[in-house]
Computed example of a mutant assay.
Amino acid sequence: MKKVGLYFGTFNPIHIGHLVIANYMVEFSDLDEVWFVITPRSPFKQKQSLLDDHHRFQMVFEAIEDYPKLKASKVEFSLPQPNYTVNTLVHLGEQYGADHRFCLIMGEDNLKTFHKWKNYEVILDNHELYVYPRVSDGRLPDQFKGHEGIHQVNAPIMEISSTFIRKQHKAGKNIRPMLPDRVWKYMDEMNFYR
């Protein structure tokens, strides 16, 4: 059975912080692969600033081309909107059956609000969570402390965001070192975020 970590996000754009976290998870935990699940629209984010789904998928694809344990997934593109993680997990379970065991990868900031997710108890009962550190006070809700299905992975703290990259790129700043080279080339050729 293949153990797959699902790394959900809009990846608008994908940056080196995303790659560092995903690669750390697949190399230093018991995950066999990490799939970047490109979300068309999150229930918690506005869609206005999102690039077209196809372009964000292409940037993820470009970013991970040299990493065989990392995959790009557009599974949510064909699911009803808005996307809810619990529905995506059910769909993947039906599609891949007993060959794959799906886990969630999330920052500890998301774990703090996990109780607000649709059917979070169902997710936690059926899927493990791999949580990476984010800049925060480190306190987790009591209901998640010591939970056997939640694994805190001591991945590097990445203080970089897609929002920062978009804003600074539009302002004319050189953000190229924050992006995988192929992502930068694609972004530049397509004249995105200007």
Rank of each mutant, 00 (worst) to 15 (best):
G107C: 05
T113Y: 04
P141A: 06
N110I: 02
H127A: 13
D137P: 08
V131C: 11
G138M: 11
L140T: 13
N110K: 05
S136F: 08
F102G: 06
I123R: 01
G138N: 13
V135L: 15
R134I: 06
D125P: 00
K112G: 11
L104V: 11
V135K: 15
H127S: 07
I123Y: 00
Y132T: 05
Y120A: 05
E121S: 14
Y132Q: 07
H115M: 11
H127G: 10
G138Y: 12
V135M: 14
K112T: 12
E108R: 01
Y120L: 05
D142F: 10
N110E: 05
N126V: 06
R139F: 13
V135T: 13
L104P: 02
L129P: 00
R139I: 14
V122K: 14
L140R: 10
N110H: 07
L111P: 02
M106P: 02
H127L: 09
Y130D: 05
Q143V: 12
Q143M: 15
P133N: 07
L104N: 00
P141R: 05
L129H: 01
H115A: 11
D137C: 14
R134T: 08
K118A: 05
N126I: 06
V131E: 08
I123W: 01
H115W: 09
G138W: 13
S136N: 14
G138I: 09
H115S: 15
I105K: 05
D109W: 00
R134Y: 10
G107L: 03
S136T: 14
R139H: 15
Y120T: 04
P133G: 12
R134V: 04
N126C: 06
N110F: 02
K112N: 15
W117I: 11
L104G: 07
N126R: 10
V131R: 08
T113G: 08
I123V: 11
D109E: 11
N110V: 00
W117M: 08
F102T: 04
E128H: 10
P133W: 09
Y132W: 12
N119Y: 11
V135G: 05
L140Q: 14
W117D: 07
K112Y: 03
D125A: 13
H127T: 08
V131A: 10
C103E: 10
G138F: 10
Y132A: 06
I105V: 15
P141W: 06
W117E: 09
S136P: 07
E108G: 04
C103Q: 07
D109H: 02
F114G: 00
D109C: 03
H127M: 06
P133V: 11
F144C: 05
V122G: 05
F144L: 04
M106E: 02
I123K: 01
N126Q: 10
N126E: 09
L140I: 15
V131G: 09
F114H: 00
L129S: 01
D137E: 15
E128A: 09
V131I: 14
E128N: 10
D125M: 07
P141D: 03
E128T: 03
W117F: 10
